[in-house]
Nucleic acid binder design. Structure first.
Length: 397
RNA sequence: GCGCCGGUCGGAUAGCGGCUAUUCCAGGAGACUGUAAAUCUCCCGCCCAUUGGGCAUCGUUGGUUCGAGUCCAACCCGGCGCA
């Protein structure tokens, strides 16, 4: 079995995912390394950042390596110089991010201001029942489907692979969301049939913000012989529902997923999200927030985030976050002033250090979450952490 | 003293007769959730305002012109050269 469930605290779960490349203590944050590396980090930065597991992307590696590159590919572990657990996304998210997300200018989490928004950019994706046509940078149309995604993922050699899926947008109506879900279900079966490796494979639950669809999807996917399950967006809908509904959706879904298998929440991961997801039985979650926002100059801490590139930090000689034990704050003694200057100088240490700090922060938060579950204190820990977060925020403003 | 350059929003720049004075940096406010993002959006002379409007402004003062940052003159600064 891939998963040991060690303890439950309410719905929150403490566990271990066991792979050929080591164990992942859960709940855990999965760090995103799309192109086979975590952006702006050196291989030696990964372990000190507290990372247990990384997720890379089939679509991006497929495009950058090409057929020949894939045939000669040494495997992600060697490629990344990372011998810990790795998972690969199937390319399903690009069906959304290069498709309706671009066209509608909307993320996967519904926001009121996006309701009724006009077309913003070109949709580069054409979805059919059999698979998906992407318009690549070169202008050529390229085809990806469940079987090819799986074959590529086998060549990439991650420990955990994902079935190819079609995430729908919060702006989609019931009919389209149902259609996308049904395709996802069909592609899940095809993915299982196509797999010949011994990699673990997760099926993906869709269904948007619609309760019956989410439940149906969880039942259908949950009954398939996957090693674990992932929950994909859209979260919320354009019809007045908001981010909080993300978590209702998790409740609808998780009750139908097998208890003895891991559950991954795809692409969600701010502080409050972590608590809400873990509370509802999520074991792992990945998110670009620590790396992307780090690169963009935002630093995360237990009082939320701040933009270290603002002029007020120009002469600030305090650490990024007080009492932080990350390699940047604690070992290198990097101050706000230093990072500010690195960003202004376009010194590569700026995004690198900011990313390391942020990754460490989220990984460390997860370890605190695990400790709280271990002692049956999850709810108290959640409450005190979020209360203190809100207070610190207010004090700053 | 003579000659030659040059003075444009915090800094650097573009503009060389035509109406909204450009761009970059710095500064300010936001955004970012399975990465087509080390990116993107807005503001950055002053005053009101809800869209929008009013008033300034290219060293100074005059002049030429329907119209001047742009042309002319004088002056003031700065640099270089010659005395």
């Amino acid at each position: 079995m891939i998963f040991d469930l060690l303890k439950e605290d309410g719905q929150a779960r403490l566990g271990v995912i066991k792979t050929k490349h080591g164990q992942v203590e859960t709940p855990s944050y999965v760090v995103v390394g799309t192109d086979g590396h975590i952006r702006c980090l050196e291989p030696e930065d990964v372990k000190p950042s507290g990372t247990q597991i990384v997720i890379s992307n089939t679509y991006h590696l497929w495009r950058s390596l090409g057929e020949e590159g894939l045939n000669a590919f040494p495997g992600l572990h060697e490629f990344m110089e990372w011998d810990g657990p790795i998972m690969t996304d199937s390319g399903g998210f690009q069906v959304f991010s290069m498709g309706y997300a671009r066209e509608l200018g909307s993320g996967k989490i519904a926001k009121a201001e996006n309701a009724g928004k006009e077309m913003k950019d070109k949709n580069l994706v054409r979805v059919t029942d059999s698979g998906v046509y992407f318009t690549a940078e070169t202008g050529e149309e390229i085809y990806l489907d469940a079987e090819l995604s799986l074959r590529i993922q086998e060549q990439l050699g991650a420990d955990i692979v994902l079935a190819f899926d079609e995430p729908s947008s919060p702006l989609h109506d019931y009919e389209y969301t149902k259609k996308a879900m049904e395709r996802t279900h069909a592609w899940a079966t095809r993915s299982l049939d196509a797999k010949i490796s011994k990699q673990f494979i997760y099926g993906i639950v869709q269904g948007g913000a619609f309760e019956d669809l989410r439940k149906e999807s969880a039942k259908v996917i949950g009954a398939m012989p996957f090693d674990g399950f992932a929950i994909g967006g859209a979260f919320g809908s354009s019809f007045g529902s908001q981010k909080n509904d993300t978590f209702v959706e998790l409740e609808w879904v998780n009750q139908f997923l097998p208890k003895n298998k891991p559950r991954h929440l795809l692409g969600i991961g701010r502080i409050d999200d972590i608590f809400e997801a873990v509370e509802r039985g999520v074991d792992t979650m990945d998110c670009v927030i620590p790396t992307r926002e780090g690169r963009h100059g935002s630093i995360w801490g237990s009082s939320g985030r701040f933009d270290v590139v603002k002029g007020k930090y120009m002469h600030d000689e305090s650490p990024l976050v007080i009492d932080c034990s990350c390699p940047v704050c604690d070992e290198k003694n990097i101050t706000k002033k230093d990072i500010y200057q690195f960003f202004k100088d376009r010194d590569p240490r700026a995004p690198r250090y900011a990313s390391i700090h942020n990754i460490y922060f989220f990984n460390h938060l997860m370890s605190q979450v695990r400790d709280s579950i271990k002692f049956g204190e999850f709810k108290n820990f959640k409450k005190s952490y979020l209360t203190s977060l809100a207070e610190k925020k207010n004090r700053v403003e």
